[in-house]
Simulated scan of single mutants.
Amino acid sequence: MNIDWSIIVPSTINFFIFYLILRKFVFNKTLAVINTRKEEVESAFKKARDEEERAKLLKQKYDEDVKRYRNDGLKLVESYKQKADKVYAEIVEDSQREVANIKERATKEIKREREKASKEIKQEIIDLSMKLAEKTLEKEINEESHRELIDKFIAKVGI
């Protein structure tokens, strides 16, 4: 096999010239496009990582807010429960006080009625005793002295 240098040398020179032309006009622009694209991809990845980090922080803040709101809600419910219990206790206490007042008034009223009835019975006994004494003695007795005698008699008997 024979090497034909007359073809190899001009071919090699053409190849280097072609390479330099490609390098000057195509490779640099292609590398620039590739580098630009690489930077865009890296920027997109960085942005995605930043967004992911931001999302994690927002989720953490959201979880903390939910926990805080839940605790606040429980405290609020407990506060309203305590207020309701207090109102319930006040209502029960007021009712018991009212029942005691009614009972006391009823007791006083019963006592007054008993005393009134007792006085009326005494008066009836006195009147009947006077009529009986008048009929027995067939004469009229001094009403005031007779009443005094009957009152003493009733006091001794215990009416």
Rank of each mutant, 00 (worst) to 15 (best):
M1S: 14
I3P: 06
I3Y: 02
W5T: 11
W5N: 02
I7W: 02
I8V: 15
I8P: 08
V9T: 11
V9W: 03
T12R: 00
F15I: 15
I17F: 12
I17M: 13
F18Y: 14
L20I: 12
R23H: 12
R23N: 15
K24D: 13
F25L: 05
F25E: 06
F27E: 15
F27R: 01
N28M: 04
N28V: 14
T30A: 11
L31S: 09
L31C: 01
N35F: 11
E40K: 03
E42H: 13
E42A: 09
S43T: 14
A44K: 07
K46S: 10
K47P: 00
A48L: 10
R49E: 10
D50Y: 04
D50A: 08
E51V: 04
A55N: 02
K56G: 05
L57R: 13
K59I: 10
K59N: 03
Q60R: 13
Q60S: 12
D63C: 04
E64V: 14
V66I: 15
R70P: 09
K81W: 07
A84E: 11
K86L: 13
A89R: 01
A89F: 12
E93A: 05
S95V: 07
V99Y: 05
A100V: 10
N101R: 11
I102M: 09
I102S: 01
K103V: 15
A106Q: 08
T107L: 02
R112N: 09
I121M: 00
I125A: 01
I125E: 00
D127L: 03
A133R: 11
A133H: 10
E134C: 03
K135F: 08
L137C: 03
K139V: 03
I141N: 03
I150G: 03
D151N: 11
K156N: 13
K156P: 08
V157K: 12
I159S: 01
